[in-house]
Design a protein around this nucleic acid. Structure first.
Length: 248
DNA sequence: CCAGACGTTGTT
DNA sequence: GTCTGG
DNA sequence: CCAGACGTTGTT
DNA sequence: GTCTGG
C-alpha cells in the first residue's frame, strides 16, 4: 500500500524530467518551493502528474480516484477513501478502476519517495516510520490510473488518480512486513511505454512487476510524520532518525 | 425487480 | 455505468 | 492507513 | 476493542 509520499522537487525541475509544460496557475500554486515533503493521501490533495491523455503537460490531479459514474460529491468523498490505492493485479476487473484501465488512462505520479511503517513486534504495538527512495536518483515515477468526474460540485471537472500497488520487493518486504505491498514504480526507460494508451493488458501487468528489479533505499525517520499538532510537510520530516530497537 | 455497492489493508 | 444481493 | 471517539433524541 | 472520519 501507499498512503504517504513526498515530492521534494521544484516545479521547474519536474517539467524538465518529464519534458512537460505547465501553466501559470500551477507556477503560482507552487512558486519556487519544493512541491511537498510529506503528503498524506487522506487529505485528497492535488499534485502534478503526467497522464497518457496529455503526456506533454503537468496537470494537478487529486489523489483518491473518483470514477466517472459517481453521481454526487457525497458519493465521491465516500468512495475516494478507498481508492487511494488500486491492486494492480485487479485493475481490469474492479468497477471503480476497470474503465480507466481499459481506456488506457494510466499516469505517472512524480515522487521523491514514499513512507511506510514497519512493525517491530508480533502484537502490533510498536511501529517505526521509514522514508523509501531511489538509491541513485532523486525523482522517480509511481504508476497510477486516473479518471474524470463531472458531479463533484467543483467549478470544473474533478480530476483524480489512484496509486497502483503490487507485491513488495525484497527491501519492501522487510519494511512493510505485515502487508507486503508497495507502489508500482516505473523506471525512466519504461515511462513512455506506460503512457502509451495502446499498451496491451499483458504488457501493462508486466510493467507492474518491474519493481522487483529496482534498487531502493530506506531510512527510519521521526514520528513527527504522524504528529497532528505540528505540520509534517516540512524538510525535517525527511531527516534520518535512529531507533534503538532497529537493528535490521 | 430495486437498492446498494463500487475499496484498501488488516488483528495497534 | 454495471453488478450483486435480497 | 492513522487518529480520535467512544452520545442523545428524532423519526423518511 | 471497534468504529468513523480524514
Amino acid at each position: 500500500m501507499c498512503y504517504h509520499k513526498s515530492l521534494k522537487v521544484k516545479l521547474e525541475k519536474l517539467a524538465e524530467y518529464y519534458q512537460a509544460e505547465y501553466d501559470k496557475t500551477m507556477s503560482e500554486l507552487y512558486g519556487d518551493n519544493p512541491i511537498s515533503y510529506h503528503e498524506n493521501g487522506f487529505d485528497f490533495k492535488a499534485t502534478p502528474i503526467v497522464t497518457a491523455g496529455v503526456p506533454n503537460a503537468l496537470q494537478n490531479f487529486n489523489w483518491g480516484l473518483v470514477p466517472f459514474w459517481v453521481k454526487d460529491a457525497a458519493g465521491g468523498t465516500k468512495l475516494r477513501v478507498s481508492t487511494l490505492n488500486c491492486i494492480s493485479e485487479e485493475m481490469y476487473d474492479k468497477p471503480s478502476f476497470r474503465d480507466s484501465a481499459k481506456e488506457g488512462k494510466r499516469c505517472l505520479i512524480p515522487s521523491t519517495g514514499f513512507y511506510e511503517w514497519r512493525w517491530m513486534d508480533e502484537k502490533g504495538k510498536t511501529k517505526i516510520p521509514y522514508h523509501i527512495h531511489f538509491k541513485d536518483q532523486e525523482l522517480f515515477s509511481i504508476a497510477g490510473l486516473y479518471a474524470k468526474n463531472k458531479n463533484m460540485g467543483t467549478s470544473g471537472d474533478y480530476h483524480s488518480y489512484a496509486v497502483l500497488t503490487t507485491r513488495a520487493n525484497t527491501l519492501m518486504t522487510k519494511i512493510h512486513n505485515s502487508k507486503k505491498r508497495m507502489p508500482v514504480i516505473i523506471p525512466k526507460q519504461y515511462e513512455k511505454d506506460w503512457l502509451n494508451p495502446a499498451l496491451s493488458k499483458d504488457d501493462v501487468l508486466a510493467l507492474c512487476n518491474v519493481v522487483h528489479e529496482i534498487d531502493l533505499d530506506a531510512h527510519t525517520i521521526s514520528k513527527r510524520i504522524t504528529d497532528k499538532k505540528e505540520s509534517s510537510d516540512v524538510p525535517e520530516v525527511l531527516l534520518p532518525h535512529v531507533y534503538e530497537e532497529v537493528r535490521d
